[in-house]
Design a protein around this nucleic acid. Structure first.
Length: 349
DNA sequence: CACCCGTGGAC
DNA sequence: TGTCCAAGGGT
């Protein structure tokens, strides 16, 4: 392990952060609940995407108690479009744990924080340091990238075990009495200066401490294995309209992809079909790209009579007909909008 | 540890 | 247009 001037590094990093940190909604006060919610939303999600969701979420659920007492479906609706919906369900579970086990007050020690549902090693360190000033590491993708360059570490950061080594490094170099700013400064540096592509080393406050910069290898660090290509899934999707103009929707499984969200009924096909069946009812093809798979959906519009309603509802007890205006009450995956827009356009022809 | 789990922006 | 990616956690 190469060594750096730790005190000089801390001073240069913290000085830069003090003058350049962004004014973000969750940095206005030290409310641990706000920091908690922001950290969950920020998992694998950009700051610009999170800001409007965070503000809306805080208006709906200003306190732990408000969130704990809300219906899960209301929480999912507030999360609609953010992705990784287990974050919302786990957060909802966790605030209820705080209500029951800690009298509604966020626990202030790292061990208790880490036990809450949806809070892993990174988030526990982030909340412990940012909200409660414990000198705990908060190692995310930014921190691994920055430190891989500072110390020229060639470990594959895509591997699950990589984080531990970086946590050990942070414990050695963290500013003990300014842990909140130190951890946020490392992440801020990774987001603003020490970016994945084309890092702005000329503007970097810690360039003098950086071995990658000294050796000219910053473009080759960090080492990160490529992901596997996503798998295609072929689906028939049905917009079913009854005689009363109501639409058939169904709730997805309690676990797995898009758990507990609603959708128009879908059936998986063995493989992509050359020719479309029921051409008369065919509306459009909709593609929904996920991180690890792709839905290729053929969408059909079906007008049914009163006698047919029961046959569609019989499939399971998670289906129901709702008025089009009431679709806004249910959380849907983003592909829902294309499907409903296409169905409306087809219905007008 | 490998895989599952969303979405939209940047190049 | 395809690829990578962004303040990860659960299983």
């Amino acid at each position: 392990m190469k060594s750096i001037d730790t005190r000089g590094f801390q001073q240069d990093l913290l000085g830069w952060y003090h003058n350049n940190k962004r004014d973000l909604p969750w940095r206005k006060d030290g409310d641990p609940y706000k920091i908690w919610v922001s950290e969950i939303m920020l998992q694998q999600t950009r700051v610009d995407t999170v800001i409007p969701y965070f503000n809306h979420f805080m208006r709906l659920f200003p306190t732990i108690k408000d969130l704990a007492e809300a219906d899960e479906e209301t929480v999912l609706k507030a999360w609609e479009g953010l992705g990784y919906y287990s974050r919302a369900r786990n957060l909802h579970t966790a605030v209820n744990e705080v209500q029951e086990q800690y009298g509604g007050v966020m626990p202030a020690d790292p061990v208790s924080i880490r036990k809450l549902k949806g809070i892993g090693p990174y988030t526990a360190g982030a909340i412990s340091s940012i909200a409660f000033h414990y000198p705990e590491p908060a190692v995310d993708g930014n921190v691994m990238r920055v430190l891989a360059r500072i110390f020229t570490i060639y470990d594959d950061i895509a591997k699950n075990g990589a984080r531990k080594r970086f946590e050990a490094i942070v414990r050695e170099i963290i500013a003990e009495n300014e842990a909140a700013d130190f951890n946020q400064a490392l992440m801020e540096l990774g987001a603003m200066i020490c970016t994945p592509r084309d890092p702005d080393c000329h503007s970097c406050p810690v360039a003098d401490h950086c071995y990658a910069r000294e050796e000219g290898v910053q473009a080759y660090l960090p080492v990160k294995a490529k992901k596997k290509p996503p798998k295609n899934v072929y689906l028939d999707t049905y917009v079913v309209v009854n005689a009363g103009g109501e639409l058939l929707i169904e709730q997805r499984s309690d676990t797995g992809l898009l758990a507990k969200l609603w959708q128009f009924p879908m059936t998986e096909k063995e493989q992509e079909q050359e020719k479309l069946q029921d051409e008369g009812n065919y509306v459009q093809h909709v593609k929904h790209v996920f991180s690890h798979l792709v839905w290729e959906m053929d969408v059909y519009l079906l007008q049914i009579g009163e006698e047919e309603e029961q046959t569609w509802l019989d499939a399971n007890d998670r289906r129901k007909f709702v008025h089009p205006d009431d679709l806004t009450l249910y959380p849907f995956p983003v592909s829902h909008q294309k499907i409903i827009d296409g169905a409306i356009a087809a219905n007008m022809n």
